[in-house]
Amino acid sequence: MSASTRWTLFVMLLTVNVVYQLVYPNTWHQIAVSSLTGLGLIGLLIEYLARGRRER
């Protein structure tokens, strides 16, 4: 995954996370969306860290 794809995905997932919290607070689907996008964000960061270790 290229750097621009990775960070574009990061910003999109973060935006979805924040906007969904504001528009649908305290609903079951907001919790599900926040969890999924949060996992996605962490996954992207892990991929970034792993790629750095491989390149070294």
């Binding site: 973060l14 996370n17 924040v18 919290q21 504001l22 964000l41 960061l45 970034y48 750095g52």
Partner: peptide, 24 residues
């Protein structure tokens, strides 16, 4: 350094995620 990027990204994401909590 990668650790800086990861730490910074996590903190910004965490900060923005709590925006909803502080508003509600």
């Amino acid at each position: 350094a990668r650790w800086r990027v990861i730490a910074g990204a996590l903190l910004v994401a965490a900060g923005l995620s709590t925006l909803g909590l502080s508003l509600k």
